[in-house]
Nucleic acid binder design. Structure first.
Length: 404
DNA sequence: GTCAATTCACATGAAAGAGACCACGGTCTAGTG
DNA sequence: CTAGACCGTGGTCTCTTTCATGTGAATTGACGA
């Protein structure tokens, strides 16, 4: 105990002695809301013009926003909505803006939960489950229809919602206006998936996307100026090596101009530099940061998987260990069953395991390809896409949590 | 040799079941006046 | 008499199972040159 505390105090002392590279780190955090949003003036204006009719107590058109992750969709909307909200409050206009991020599980991935969450946003309590769905609609209608008002409903990551809960909810929401006597609802949908609306019910599609807006990815130049601006306030002056920002921007621009990723990269680079006790943030730190982010992501992903999924993944890893070649679903299932018997866990059916493997593909842990081996059937060809240096650690994690 | 039929080993879909939650309303019980 | 404990019912949600159907090319086998 004594020893430990000495060691610890040593660590802290050392930390204190080092010159910090960060000045105000929170400016690099993804939830930070800058005062000005760069390179999105056009979009902000468009949204503002459309939604401004709410100030005249008319229902604004529904807006549909597309764009890849990290292109500033959420930020832009939140920014404009904040402004709108302030204006409406200043002029005493009955306007409510509800923001829901559909990606957050447990909050908004079913029809019921969305409505329940909306009601909660409006300040009323409602049971998290147990009520019939139409009941909750009635409660919702009652609450908002009490007074004359415009409600702007922002559904972030709406594609996730539809994927899980179907598009019926959107239909119901758009149709709600006909049942409301006093209030009116306007919907702003935000989607990461550019092809999302293709799979929508045409009725929903037409009513939802009265106005459409596409956020194109930032290019390297724009990313650079965003990074520059943020790093100026986030880092101590002069700690950033020449060319680091540029490289960081280039990295992020390479995979679809994701600003969030660029900022994270920059932040982690700084953290690594700081931990090393380096006075400057170097390009080598950036490289380390990139692999660290990826590694952390995978490890986090793996350790939060449910048990059955972990067993399947463990099987894949084990088989991949034995041979370099590609793996087929059948083999995985056989191996998986073996482990289940060993650990006396009831094995899932092949059908389910097949789905689980497909899920891993979605998560990017493996790359799967459906191939036909002619006479010898059709199967998924699985390739592990976990980098070698993470493999050992992941296997350890899986081993521990499964105790095999 | 050519061409269509066959066949394999799964993929992919749809529907329905199991079990965990949870709210609500009714009933029972013990404590209180 | 009443607050709180304790069911039973009816609803949702997630994860699975069951049953059905789909699928792409290697293989097979009939056919004709």
């Amino acid at each position: 105990m004594e020893k430990n505390s000495k060691q610890l105090s040593h660590v802290f002392e050392k930390y204190m002695k080092n010159k910090p590279v960060f000045h105000q780190k929170q400016f690099l955090q993804s939830n930070y809301m800058p005062d000005t949003i760069e390179h999105r003036d056009k979009e902000i204006n468009t949204i503002a013009e459309i939604s401004a009719s709410a100030l005249r107590n008319e229902k604004p058109s529904n807006i549909f926003i597309y764009g890849k992750t990290g292109t500033g969709k959420t930020l832009t909307i939140q920014y404009t909505m904040n402004q709108l909200n302030e204006t409406s409050q200043a002029h005493n206009i009955p306007l409510k803006i509800l923001y829901i991020n559909c990606k957050l599980k447990k909050i908004a991935d079913t029809e019921y939960r969305i409505i329940a969450q909306l009601i909660r946003e409006l300040g009323k309590e409602v049971p998290p489950t147990g009520l019939p769905t139409d009941e909750i609609y009635k409660i919702f209608i009652n609450i908002i229809d009490q007074e004359q008002q415009i409600i702007i409903l922002v559904l972030d990551e709406i594609d996730q919602l539809v994927k899980k809960a179907g598009d019926e909810i959107l239909y119901n929401l758009t149709r709600l206006n006909t049942e409301l006597k006093k209030a009116q609802i306007s919907i702003i949908g935000i989607s990461n998936d550019l092809l999302f609306s293709d799979n929508l019910d045409p009725r929903v599609k037409s009513s939802l996307s009265e106005e459409e807006l596409i956020f194109s990815p930032y290019n390297a130049l724009q990313l650079k100026s965003i990074l520059k601006k943020r790093s100026d306030i986030a880092f101590v002056d002069g700690v950033i090596e020449q060319g680091l920002i540029e490289k960081c921007a280039a990295y992020a621009a390479r995979d679809h101009g994701d600003a969030r990723r660029a900022l994270e990269l920059l932040r982690v680079s700084g953290e690594i530099a700081e931990r090393e006790g380096s006075k400057k943030v170097m390009i080598s730190h950036l490289d380390l940061a990139e692999s660290k982010i990826e590694k952390d992501r995978i490890i986090d992903l793996v350790s939060t998987q449910p048990k059955q999924h972990q067993i399947v993944l463990y099987s894949i890893l084990k088989i991949a260990d034995k041979r370099q070649k590609v793996i087929f679903t059948g083999e995985i299932y056989e191996y998986y069953k073996g482990i289940c018997i060993e650990t006396s866990i009831r094995p899932l059916t092949q059908r389910r395991v097949s789905d689980i493997i497909a899920e891993f593909d979605m998560l990017g842990l493996i790359t799967g390809k459906i191939i036909s081996k002619g006479r010898y059937g059709r199967t998924r060809e699985v390739n592990l896409s976990i980098p070698d240096e993470s493999k050992v650690k992941i296997k350890q994690i899986l081993k521990d949590s499964l105790n095999v």
